[in-house]
Protein backbone atom coordinates (compact mmCIF):
# COMPACT_ATOMS: atom_id res chain seq x y z
CA UNK A 1 0.00 0.00 0.00
CA UNK A 2 1.27 3.47 -0.94
CA UNK A 3 2.48 5.71 1.90
CA UNK A 4 0.67 8.95 2.65
CA UNK A 5 2.87 11.96 1.91
CA UNK A 6 3.19 14.92 4.26
CA UNK A 7 1.15 17.07 1.89
CA UNK A 8 -1.61 14.47 1.69
CA UNK A 9 -1.65 14.19 5.47
CA UNK A 10 -1.97 17.96 5.78
CA UNK A 11 -4.86 17.95 3.30
CA UNK A 12 -6.48 15.06 5.17
CA UNK A 13 -6.30 17.02 8.41
CA UNK A 14 -7.80 20.01 6.58
CA UNK A 15 -10.63 17.82 5.31
CA UNK A 16 -11.38 16.65 8.83
CA UNK A 17 -11.51 20.34 9.74
CA UNK A 18 -14.18 20.74 7.07
CA UNK A 19 -16.05 17.73 8.51
CA UNK A 20 -15.86 19.26 11.98
CA UNK A 21 -17.25 22.58 10.72
CA UNK A 22 -20.10 20.80 8.94
CA UNK A 23 -20.82 18.77 12.08
CA UNK A 24 -20.85 22.01 14.06
CA UNK A 25 -23.49 23.41 11.71
CA UNK A 26 -25.60 20.26 11.34
CA UNK A 27 -25.49 19.03 14.94
CA UNK A 28 -23.83 21.71 17.08
CA UNK A 29 -26.13 24.59 16.17
CA UNK A 30 -29.34 22.53 16.70
CA UNK A 31 -27.87 21.39 20.07
CA UNK A 32 -27.31 25.03 21.07
CA UNK A 33 -30.86 25.77 19.92
CA UNK A 34 -32.23 22.96 22.09
CA UNK A 35 -30.28 24.26 25.07
CA UNK A 36 -32.48 27.37 25.17
CA UNK A 37 -36.11 27.05 26.17
CA UNK A 38 -38.60 27.86 23.44
CA UNK A 39 -41.56 28.46 25.72
CA UNK A 40 -42.54 31.92 26.91
CA UNK A 41 -45.18 32.65 29.54
CA UNK A 42 -48.18 34.69 28.44
CA UNK A 43 -50.19 37.26 30.29
CA UNK A 44 -53.76 36.17 30.69
CA UNK A 45 -56.31 37.92 28.48
CA UNK A 46 -53.77 39.87 26.39
CA UNK A 47 -54.08 39.32 22.60
CA UNK A 48 -51.09 37.83 20.80
CA UNK A 49 -50.04 38.94 17.30
CA UNK A 50 -50.25 35.99 14.86
CA UNK A 51 -49.20 37.99 11.81
CA UNK A 52 -50.84 39.94 8.94
CA UNK A 53 -52.88 41.92 11.45
CA UNK A 54 -54.48 38.83 13.04
CA UNK A 55 -54.59 38.57 16.82
CA UNK A 56 -55.88 35.96 19.26
CA UNK A 57 -56.32 35.82 23.01
CA UNK A 58 -54.52 32.63 24.07
CA UNK A 59 -56.06 30.16 26.51
CA UNK A 60 -55.33 30.76 30.15
CA UNK A 61 -52.22 28.87 31.27
CA UNK A 62 -50.89 28.47 27.72
CA UNK A 63 -47.26 29.23 26.82
CA UNK A 64 -46.00 30.61 23.54
CA UNK A 65 -43.52 28.41 21.64
CA UNK A 66 -41.31 30.91 19.83
CA UNK A 67 -39.95 28.27 17.42
CA UNK A 68 -43.38 28.00 15.82
CA UNK A 69 -44.27 31.67 16.08
CA UNK A 70 -43.46 34.01 13.18
CA UNK A 71 -45.70 37.08 13.14
CA UNK A 72 -44.90 38.62 9.75
CA UNK A 73 -46.47 41.58 7.96
CA UNK A 74 -48.29 39.60 5.26
CA UNK A 75 -48.40 36.12 6.82
CA UNK A 76 -47.56 34.53 10.10
CA UNK A 77 -48.01 31.82 12.64
CA UNK A 78 -48.31 31.28 16.38
CA UNK A 79 -47.79 28.11 18.38
CA UNK A 80 -49.21 27.75 21.87
CA UNK A 81 -48.74 24.85 24.24
CA UNK A 82 -51.05 23.71 27.00
CA UNK A 83 -49.15 20.86 28.58
CA UNK A 84 -48.83 18.25 25.86
CA UNK A 85 -51.45 19.87 23.61
CA UNK A 86 -50.31 22.00 20.66
CA UNK A 87 -52.50 24.85 19.46
CA UNK A 88 -51.18 26.22 16.16
CA UNK A 89 -52.54 29.14 14.13
CA UNK A 90 -51.29 30.01 10.64
CA UNK A 91 -52.30 33.06 8.57
CA UNK A 92 -51.71 33.46 4.84
CA UNK A 93 -53.00 35.64 2.01
CA UNK A 94 -55.93 33.90 0.30
CA UNK A 95 -58.38 34.92 -2.40
CA UNK A 96 -60.77 31.94 -2.34
CA UNK A 97 -63.89 31.14 -0.31
CA UNK A 98 -64.30 29.28 2.95
CA UNK A 99 -65.14 25.91 1.36
CA UNK A 100 -61.99 26.03 -0.78
CA UNK A 101 -59.89 26.95 2.24
CA UNK A 102 -61.37 24.07 4.26
CA UNK A 103 -60.85 21.60 1.40
CA UNK A 104 -57.20 22.62 1.08
CA UNK A 105 -56.57 22.31 4.81
CA UNK A 106 -58.20 18.87 4.89
CA UNK A 107 -56.07 17.78 1.93
CA UNK A 108 -52.94 18.92 3.68
CA UNK A 109 -53.92 17.02 6.83
CA UNK A 110 -54.71 13.81 4.95
CA UNK A 111 -51.56 14.26 2.83
CA UNK A 112 -49.52 13.31 5.90
CA UNK A 113 -49.24 9.50 6.08
CA UNK A 114 -51.51 8.07 8.80
CA UNK A 115 -53.66 11.20 9.18
CA UNK A 116 -57.42 10.88 8.62
CA UNK A 117 -60.20 13.44 8.81
CA UNK A 118 -63.08 12.26 11.01
CA UNK A 119 -66.76 13.15 11.02
CA UNK A 120 -68.36 16.09 9.29
CA UNK A 121 -67.53 19.78 9.44
CA UNK A 122 -69.40 22.26 11.56
CA UNK A 123 -69.82 25.98 11.05
CA UNK A 124 -68.08 28.14 13.63
CA UNK A 125 -67.62 31.85 14.09
CA UNK A 126 -65.56 34.32 16.02
CA UNK A 127 -66.61 37.17 18.25
CA UNK A 128 -65.22 39.56 15.64
CA UNK A 129 -67.51 38.15 12.94
CA UNK A 130 -65.21 35.76 11.03
CA UNK A 131 -67.00 32.73 9.61
CA UNK A 132 -65.27 29.37 9.72
CA UNK A 133 -65.53 25.61 9.51
CA UNK A 134 -64.17 23.11 11.97
CA UNK A 135 -63.66 19.35 12.02
CA UNK A 136 -61.63 16.60 13.61
CA UNK A 137 -58.81 14.31 12.59
CA UNK A 138 -56.91 11.34 13.93
CA UNK A 139 -53.27 10.42 13.63
CA UNK A 140 -51.15 7.60 15.04
CA UNK A 141 -51.05 8.12 18.82
CA UNK A 142 -52.83 11.46 18.71
CA UNK A 143 -55.85 13.25 17.41
CA UNK A 144 -57.07 16.75 17.10
CA UNK A 145 -59.27 19.44 15.69
CA UNK A 146 -58.87 21.78 12.82
CA UNK A 147 -60.65 25.00 12.00
CA UNK A 148 -60.36 27.45 9.14
CA UNK A 149 -61.58 31.02 8.80
CA UNK A 150 -61.55 33.32 5.80
CA UNK A 151 -61.72 37.08 5.84
CA UNK A 152 -60.01 40.26 4.70
CA UNK A 153 -58.03 38.42 1.99
CA UNK A 154 -56.62 35.95 4.50
CA UNK A 155 -57.06 32.36 5.52
CA UNK A 156 -56.60 31.58 9.20
CA UNK A 157 -55.95 27.91 9.89
CA UNK A 158 -56.10 26.43 13.36
CA UNK A 159 -54.69 23.00 14.17
CA UNK A 160 -55.02 21.52 17.64
CA UNK A 161 -53.27 18.25 18.42
CA UNK A 162 -52.71 16.04 21.44
CA UNK A 163 -53.86 12.78 22.97
CA UNK A 164 -57.56 12.23 23.71
CA UNK A 165 -57.24 12.72 27.46
CA UNK A 166 -55.39 16.05 27.23
CA UNK A 167 -57.61 17.25 24.41
CA UNK A 168 -60.75 16.50 26.39
CA UNK A 169 -59.42 18.67 29.22
CA UNK A 170 -58.18 21.63 27.16
CA UNK A 171 -60.48 21.83 24.11
CA UNK A 172 -63.11 24.09 25.73
CA UNK A 173 -60.42 26.64 26.60
CA UNK A 174 -58.87 26.45 23.13
CA UNK A 175 -62.20 26.78 21.37
CA UNK A 176 -62.92 29.84 23.49
CA UNK A 177 -59.55 31.22 22.41
CA UNK A 178 -60.27 30.49 18.74
CA UNK A 179 -63.42 32.58 18.99
CA UNK A 180 -61.25 35.60 19.88
CA UNK A 181 -59.44 35.51 16.52
CA UNK A 182 -59.64 38.97 15.01
CA UNK A 183 -58.33 40.68 11.87
CA UNK A 184 -57.54 44.33 12.38
CA UNK A 185 -55.64 44.68 9.12
CA UNK A 186 -53.17 47.15 10.56
CA UNK A 187 -50.09 45.04 9.89
CA UNK A 188 -50.70 45.02 6.16
Amino acid sequence: MARITGRELKDLVGTFGVVATLAGLAFGLPAVDRAFSAERPLRSGIPVDVGAGVTVVPPSGATLDVTGTRPGDTMGSALFRLGAVQYRIAVRPFDGNLDTAATRLRQRITGTPGYQVTGSQLAVGTIGGLDGLQGGYTAPGRGGRYAVFVGDGLTIEVIISGNDLDLGRTLPQIEASTRTLRVDGTAR
Binding site: L25, A26, L29, P30, V32, D33, L64, V66, T67, R70
Partner: peptide, 26 residues
Protein backbone atom coordinates in the same frame (compact mmCIF):
# COMPACT_ATOMS: atom_id res chain seq x y z
CA UNK B 1 -28.21 21.58 1.48
CA UNK B 2 -28.27 18.66 3.95
CA UNK B 3 -26.31 20.70 6.48
CA UNK B 4 -28.19 23.94 5.87
CA UNK B 5 -31.66 22.51 6.51
CA UNK B 6 -31.21 21.74 10.25
CA UNK B 7 -28.67 24.52 10.82
CA UNK B 8 -30.84 27.19 9.18
CA UNK B 9 -33.86 26.16 11.25
CA UNK B 10 -31.75 26.19 14.43
CA UNK B 11 -30.38 29.62 13.50
CA UNK B 12 -33.86 31.08 13.01
CA UNK B 13 -35.05 29.49 16.26
CA UNK B 14 -32.13 31.06 18.11
CA UNK B 15 -33.02 34.47 16.69
CA UNK B 16 -36.58 33.93 17.92
CA UNK B 17 -35.38 32.76 21.33
CA UNK B 18 -32.62 35.29 21.95
CA UNK B 19 -34.34 38.13 20.08
CA UNK B 20 -38.05 37.81 19.45
CA UNK B 21 -40.46 35.93 17.15
CA UNK B 22 -41.07 39.26 15.35
CA UNK B 23 -37.34 39.59 14.63
CA UNK B 24 -37.20 35.99 13.41
CA UNK B 25 -40.24 36.54 11.16
CA UNK B 26 -38.77 39.67 9.58
Amino acid sequence: TSVSIPAGTAGENLIAKLGSPQLAAG
